[in-house]
Design a protein around this nucleic acid. Structure first.
Length: 204
DNA sequence: CGTAGGATTTGCT
DNA sequence: GCAAATCCTACGG
């Protein structure tokens, strides 16, 4: 694909990479059906020093071994019957990655509604967006980006980026307060959205 | 073979 | 806002 996103920036600082992923269009092609959305919400997980990460302290087992792939690979894990998707950053020795928590539906919204079995809250949470996009552990875990099934393209540009604490890690001690969550300010397709959407959903 | 872990979602009070 | 539901997978005995 000609306008595929250059993902080399994933090899640099993970927190910077997380900011740069906001607005990127993420595209899946499953069973010949294409669905896509613009990334609105991400969280960074810094494996070695981050108690909330699956790889805290360099812990490595079969479950999280995909985190030790090079940047540009995907790490999918299952929990409570839902899937969560990470884009890996850094090199093999650093198990760092970025959890995609929210996207704004773009292509194939009807397909997403069909997959989700509902018309609201399609993609405003990590388990929701993977289901809408048709992402499955057995299909995507450990796979590389831009190989035809999961593709990144330049998308939109956030007007303003908001940093907050991460969500759902209340039992992770000091890591609870790390400001590693980044969202497009005013975009309603993020978890726990409150208030009124910004003009143009917060895009430039 | 039993069981605990896991970065969630949903609906109800 | 809170608690229940849900579901693999990998680990431990």
């Amino acid at each position: 694909m000609a306008d595929t996103l250059d993902i080399k920036f994933l090899a640099d600082d993970t927190l910077d990479a997380a900011r740069k992923l906001l607005g990127v269009e993420i595209i899946t092609c499953i069973d010949g059906v294409e669905t896509s959305g613009f990334i609105t919400e991400v969280e960074a997980y810094l494996g070695l020093d981050d108690r909330a990460a699956h790889t805290f302290g360099g812990k490595k087992n079969k479950k999280n071994s995909m985190m030790f792939n090079d940047y540009g690979h995907i790490y999918v894990y299952t929990m409570h019957g839902h899937h969560c998707m990470n884009i890996l950053t850094k090199e093999k020795a650093y198990p760092e990655g970025i959890l995609i928590r929210g996207i704004e539906p773009h292509v194939g919204r009807e397909t997403m509604i069909e997959r989700r079995g509902r018309e609201t809250g399609l993609t405003d949470g990590p388990g929701k967006l993977t289901k809408s996009l048709g992402i499955r552990r057995e299909l995507h875990n450990g796979m590389e980006l831009n190989n035809g099934i999961l593709t990144l393209k330049p998308g939109r540009v956030p007007l303003e980026i908001e940093e907050t604490k991460r969500i759902g890690i209340d039992n992770k001690k000091e890591a609870v307060d790390y400001p590693y969550r980044f969202i497009v300010k005013g975009n309603p397709h993020v978890s726990r959205f409150r208030g009124r959407p910004a003009d143009n959903n917060g895009w430039k």
